[in-house]
Design a protein around this nucleic acid. Structure first.
Length: 125
DNA sequence: CACGTGACATTCT
DNA sequence: CAGAATGCCACGT
């Protein structure tokens, strides 16, 4: 299966929209769900390029790294902080790591990892 | 066209 | 368990 950039982005958004409220998943797993396991970085790219006006909205805050860490997006930016608040608003416990700007989510408690193939995503299978 | 860079993952020390 | 080392692939410079 070959997905061009636009299709890839659509697939990502489609899946992220299916993450249940109060749950989180990882970049890597989203990549696996669209059958492109080595494209984890591009999942992040897709979300970064995502416009805030997306309709229906894409709950990007429900995607974290494989160790449950919220990517800081560099010092001076408030992205991580906003993501943390969005998650806490859904009753997801967010722990603070060593650095005060480092936020961690317990994947054992809030992780959402459906097996590939058990869900569908816009793009043709 | 070579190189560095990422909202990353996995494996090895 | 924390860090370093690799692998990865689209993009901008």
């Amino acid at each position: 299966m070959t997905l061009d950039v636009a299709e890839f982005h659509e697939a990502v958004y489609s899946i992220v929209r299916q993450i249940p409220q109060g749950k989180v998943t990882t970049y890597g797993h989203v990549a696996k769900l669209i059958d492109m396991p080595s494209y984890s970085r591009h999942v992040g790219q897709a979300l970064k390029y995502l416009s805030p006006e997306a309709d229906p909205p894409v709950p990007w805050q429900r995607v974290v790294s494989s160790v449950g860490k919220i990517s800081s997006r560099g010092p001076g930016t408030d992205g991580a902080q906003r993501q943390r608040e969005a998650l806490e608003a859904e009753n997801v416990q967010v722990h603070v790591g060593r650095a005060f700007n480092e936020f961690l989510v317990d994947l054992r408690a809030y992780g959402w990892f459906p097996a590939p193939g058990t869900i569908t995503f816009g793009a043709p299978q």
